[in-house]
C-alpha cells in the first residue's frame, strides 16, 4: 500500500501537477520555447515550487500550522489542475504527438545514455550516502511533520530560531523544509528515504531533462548529438558521482543542478527574440520565485544573473526592455530579502 501511495504521489505531484502548472505558465500563443513539452514540464515543476513558496512564506510568518499549509496548497493545486484539465477538454484544439524517425546512430547514443542513467539510479537506490548536513535537514523536516508547526521555533527547546545564529535562522524565508515535509507526507515516505533516494533520482532526471532542452541551442534538429551530449555529461558526472547521490537532495544543489541553467536558458531565448514580450517575464518570475523557495542564496545569485543578462542586452540592443523584465523577475527576491531582514529586525 505504501508503495502504491508513493507511486501515486509521484505520478500526481511530479507528473500531473508540473504539466498543469507548465500549461498555466506557458499560456498564450506558442513559440519556440513554449512548444517544447519538456520545457513546459520543467518550468511547470518550478512553478509548483514557486506556488508553494508563495503560500508558505506568509503562513510561516503568521505562525500557521503545517496542516493548514497543506490544505491551502492542495486547494490551489487542485484548482489549477481542474482549470487546466477543463480547459483542455473544452478546447477544440487537437493534440497530436509527432514521432520523428530516429536514426540508428541516435539509438546508439540513447541506449548508451540510458544504461548510464539507469546505473546512476541503481547506485542511488542501493547505496545510502549520508552527509553531515543531513543531521540538520532531516530532523528539521521531521519537526515540521510531527509538531505540525512551521519553522519559526525549535520545537525541542522552544527557542526562536531567529534569536540564535546557528545556521538555521537563514531558512526562515525559504520554504524548502516545509516543502520537503509536504512531499514526504504526500508520498507517504520517511523524510530520510525521500531525501536520499527519491529526490536524487527525480532531480537527476530533471537535470538531464534540463540539459536536453538546453542542448537544443547547440544542436538544433540534431537529436543524436543532443543525446551524445547527455551521455558525455553523464560520464563526467560519474567522475564525481558521489556528489550526484549526496547533493541532489539539498535545495541549493537543485538550484545548481537545473534551476540556474534553466534561468540562463530562458534569458538566452528571450534575448534572441527580435521583439521581447512582457509575458516572458512570467517565465523568469517563476524560476526566481522557485529559487527563493529552495535556498536563500538566490538573494544574490539570481540578481547577478539577471543583471548580467540585462547589461548584455543593453549593450546589444540599446534598449531597456530586458532590464525591466529582470526587474519584474527580481520582485520575489526583493520580497525574500525583506522577509530575511525583517526576521532579524523583529527579533
Amino acid at each position: 500500500m505504501s508503495v502504491l501511495h508513493m507511486v501515486a504521489g509521484i505520478a500526481f505531484f511530479w507528473g500531473v501537477v508540473p504539466f498543469c502548472f507548465g500549461e498555466l505558465v506557458c499560456f498564450g500563443k506558442s513559440d519556440e520555447i513554449r512548444n517544447d513539452i519538456f520545457f513546459r514540464f520543467i518550468i511547470g515543476f518550478y512553478a509548483s515550487v514557486a506556488c508553494f513558496t508563495l503560500v508558505c512564506i506568509p503562513m510561516t510568518l503568521s505562525e500557521r500550522k503545517f496542516h493548514e499549509l497543506k490544505y491551502v496548497y492542495m486547494i490551489v493545486v487542485l484548482l489549477v489542475v481542474f482549470v487546466i484539465c477543463l480547459g483542455k477538454i473544452m478546447s477544440k484544439k487537437k493534440y497530436s504527438i509527432k514521432i520523428e524517425k530516429i536514426e540508428i546512430k541516435c539509438w546508439i547514443w540513447i541506449i548508451l545514455f540510458s544504461v548510464l542513467f539507469l546505473a546512476q539510479l541503481f547506485r542511488i537506490c542501493t547505496r545510502l550516502v549520508m552527509s553531515m548536513d543531513d543531521s540538520v535537514y532531516i530532523p528539521l523536516t521531521n519537526d515540521i511533520i510531527y509538531s505540525d508547526k512551521l519553522l519559526m521555533y525549535d520545537h525541542a527547546t522552544g527557542v526562536n530560531f531567529e534569536s540564535v545564529w546557528n545556521g538555521r535562522g537563514k531558512y526562515v524565508g525559504s520554504s524548502w523544509y516545509a516543502m520537503m515535509a509536504f512531499w514526504a507526507d504526500a508520498l507517504g515516505v520517511h523524510v530520510l528515504f525521500l531525501w536520499r533516494t527519491v529526490f536524487p533520482c527525480f532531480f537527476l532526471m530533471l537535470y538531464y531533462l534540463t540539459l536536453f532542452v538546453v542542448s537544443g541551442v547547440f544542436w538544433k534538429g540534431e537529436l543524436s548529438k543532443r543525446w551524445m551530449f547527455l551521455f558525455f555529461n553523464g560520464i563526467f558526472m560519474e567522475v564525481k558521482g558521489e556528489k550526484v547521490a549526496m547533493g541532489a537532495s539539498w535545495g541549493k544543489f537543485v538550484i545548481k543542478f537545473g534551476c540556474v541553467i534553466l534561468l540562463i536558458y530562458i534569458l538566452y531565448v528571450i534575448c534572441k527574440k527580435e521583439s521581447m514580450e512582457m509575458r516572458d517575464s512570467i517565465l523568469l518570475l517563476t524560476v526566481t520565485a522557485a529559487g527563493i523557495g529552495m535556498t536563500v542564496m538566490t538573494i544574490m545569485l539570481f540578481p547577478i544573473i539577471l543583471g548580467t543578462a540585462a547589461v548584455l542586452d543593453i549593450c546589444k540592443r540599446k534598449k531597456t526592455s530586458m532590464l525591466i523584465m529582470a526587474g519584474v523577475a527580481s520582485i520575489p527576491i526583493v520580497v525574500e530579502a525583506v522577509v530575511y531582514l525583517m526576521a532579524h529586525f523583529l527579533n
Binding site: 541549493k252 540562463i264 536558458y265 542564496m297 544574490m300 545569485l301 547577478i304 543578462a309
Partner: peptide, 16 residues
C-alpha cells in the same frame, strides 16, 4: 550568499 556562493553563477554564465 553573494560572494561565497558566487561560483554558482559561473556555470550558467559560462553556458551563456
Amino acid at each position: 550568499y553573494g560572494v561565497g556562493r558566487f561560483h554558482y553563477a559561473i556555470l550558467p554564465l559560462l553556458m551563456l
